[in-house]
Design a binder for these strands. Structure first.
Lengths: 250, 250
DNA sequence: AAAAAACATGCAAATAAACGCAAAAGTTAT
DNA sequence: ATAACTTTTGCGTTTATTTGCATGTTTTTT
């Protein structure tokens, strides 16, 4: 049995049951517990799972958004938030998606910024509502439980009727070759509509997600106006995105 | 059972009931009370919960209730929630407003109920999204910061296009003479639209709010189908609502 | 004030993790 | 194909974590 194969099975098992015991995996996969532990360590280092004493758990069960819980790569997300906030100007109409990075942005918006935010995420809407001078407009629709954002035809339609100055999206997969990708069809439809509608598009992502590719394509790199990461704009890791029709790197 | 698994369950339990007893948890999770105490200590150190003598509470709850007896109001809302849940039937389309009582209802919905909920409150939407079998549809719009619910013409319009089986609203003011009243014009418009749209209207309120009157009228008592309080239906305090065109008292 | 319940602390048994090392398996170069 | 090399794996040992229990203290209730 290949190591990668084991990893796949472990991941599937965790997604299915939310937890796995090292002992169970050892028996099921017919390898020693040491090997399982090593597997779990590697997967944990990649941020795929949450390693705990006795096994591992899913990172995205009950933990992901619940405001008080620790956010993965928080420091990086703060850096990203600061950069993005630099794009905001008074009176702007800004369309934002959901996700932990966007949440950090929403929290860090300066108190004196006057702007209108539109969002498909209830969490982001609530975070934005904390700011006195921000007008918050929720774009309602069927709430997709996986990503906790509103999806469906009505959302696409609503987005089609607005022309925001700026649109900010997170992403699950990003690579020079395949562009932006995600694994949830409903979510992808919404993001595509957002990109179509907005005058400028900013993608926020931690560098860790570079070169990861998901099943469904959202857009090409050239469709992006700003690519915001925690890295310095001239970091070698960003060089690949510096093509002819390059987005501005922040 | 993994330690983190217990932590998740405890957290969920607290979010659901706002408080937990160590003894209950010990029995439910089949570990000693010492272990539960250690769990609660760790979670408390992480700032996830508020440890109290005998168990733990939600952090967000002990706080905002600077007013009188928080336990009383909470207990009352739990009683109300249980009564309202009795009105829910499989396949129903239920329109709900926002507010703390509605939040308690959203949390207590039985796991096996299959129904569609529509709401104008981001908080309620998120609470409902925790339930596997519930379809959640947000009615989006401008987020009114006072009440944290979506308001505005688009909301009214959207509500006009649906015909929910049941509509559940809280209220700020209720009296036999002046009916339901509130002080926020935008919010009132939304609630009026909800009442117009729904086949049946349930009003949930703690008895404390009886005989309070706010500036803007929402509806008459006769427009209500169910009046749900923590009191027994034949409580003398409810006698005043027992007129000719009375709502059903629960 | 006494009794009961909840809490903190130390301890020991059980279990799991980390580490080093050598054998086995897989890769690459000649 | 074989040798040299790297990676992976299992095992023994050591270290760390978790848990229940005994004990004594604090808090709550009566």
């Amino acid at each position: 049995m290949l190591k990668e194969e084991r990893h796949q099975i472990i991941l599937k098992e965790i997604n299915l049951h939310n937890k796995v015991y090292s002992t169970d995996l050892s028996e099921k996969l017919q390898v020693s517990e040491d090997t399982i532990r090593r597997d779990l360590n590697e997967m944990s280092d990649l941020g795929l799972i949450l390693k705990v004493h006795g096994g591992a758990m899913s990172k995205t069960f009950h933990y992901p958004f619940n405001s008080q819980n620790p956010v993965y790569a928080l420091e990086a997300k703060h850096v990203i938030a600061d950069k993005v906030i630099g794009l905001f100007k008074k009176g702007m109409m800004i369309l934002v998606e959901g996700g932990t990075t966007i949440m950090e942005i929403a929290k860090k918006i300066p108190a004196d910024l006057q702007a209108t935010f539109l969002t498909v995420s209830p969490q982001v809407a609530l975070a934005l509502a904390e700011h006195e001078n921000i007008e918050v407009i929720s774009i309602g629709g069927r709430l997709a439980k996986s990503a906790n954002i509103h999806t469906g035809a009505s959302v696409i339609y609503e987005i089609g009727n607005i022309k925001p100055d700026l649109c900010i999206i997170g992403t699950n997969g990003i690579s020079q070759e395949h562009g932006l990708t995600d694994s949830d069809w409903e979510v992808v439809q919404v993001i595509k509509a957002m990109i179509r509608a907005a005058k400028k598009v900013a993608v926020v992502t931690i560098a860790e997600k570079f070169n990861s590719v998901k099943r469904i394509k959202i857009a090409d790199i050239k469709d992006i106006d700003y690519l915001v990461t925690e890295l310095s704009p001239n970091s070698p890791m960003l060089a690949q995105y510096n093509g002819a029709e390059k987005p501005v790197l922040l």
